[in-house]
Amino acid sequence: MSSLNIKAAFLSIVILFVGLALWEVFNQAPKATEELDEFALLMGGEDKEARVPPPSKVFKHAYKELSDPFYDAGPNDKGIGIQLFYSLVRVLIGFGAAAAIAIPLGFVIGMSELMYKALNPFIQILKPISPLAWMPLALFIIKDSEKSAVFVIFICSIWPMLLNTAFGVSNVRKDWIKVAQTHELSKLKTAFCVILPASAPTIFTGMRISIGIAWLVIVAAEMLVGGTGIGYYVWNEWNNLDLNSVIFSIIMIGLVGMTLDLILNALSRLVVYEE
């Protein structure tokens, strides 16, 4: 590893510890300096004032949660692992369905100027709609909150993959198409042996953007539909005023999102080529 990377890693760790230290120091309960009045005594003293918990408490809580991530003690008390699992399954189903439609459709749009021009107005109108705006309609039509959440993931994942696939396919270098032509490749063979590998890196970029958006949206969607999932968990812990859990789950959402991105990045390396 280069010395730059080592320096960067070292600096990251320093920033982390300084940040945590500042958070810790400025979040100590204020010392009782004078006699508590009757009200304060009734409320259990100043120390019980609601306050963002310091990192030490969050870590203690995180350790407890992570040492038993899959416990299930009823509908309102499930381990973080179970909640994340529910969210991941929804994201993967919605994302998978979106990919199954967006990539072939994007291919068609990219190959045919007519289809591109015909479908472009619809895409331009549908694309900027916040995925959560679909929720009421989805709930009404599907009549199932869980499936509606999956639908919202589907609808938000579809656009980046559709547009990136169409862009990648329509921008395949003409020289490579000529190579296919002069080798008498059939349309289908040209699509699979030349256009697909040529546009694969662009398609993967679309998939990375989509899964990132899907993971952003699932939290909000689950806050609305409730029941299970990491979004529901965050909102439920907020209702419980358990800020330790809220902060802990925020960090977990970030870690899982990063992992999803890393996985897709690793997959896209398999298809990337240098010109």
């Binding site: 020289d175 490579w176 000529k178 190579v179 032509q181 002069t182 080798h183 008498e184 042996c193 030349v194 590998p197 040529a198 694969a200 298809v271 080529y273 240098e274 010109e275």
Partner: peptide, 26 residues
């Protein structure tokens, strides 16, 4: 186009995701 008429282009026109050998076997 036909395989009866082979072309070598100025910019090589190799498929960059294939190795040299795979470009020829293509």
């Amino acid at each position: 186009s036909s395989l009866d008429r082979g072309v070598v282009f100025q910019n090589y026109s190799l498929l960059p995701w294939l190795t040299a050998l795979k470009n020829v076997t293509f």
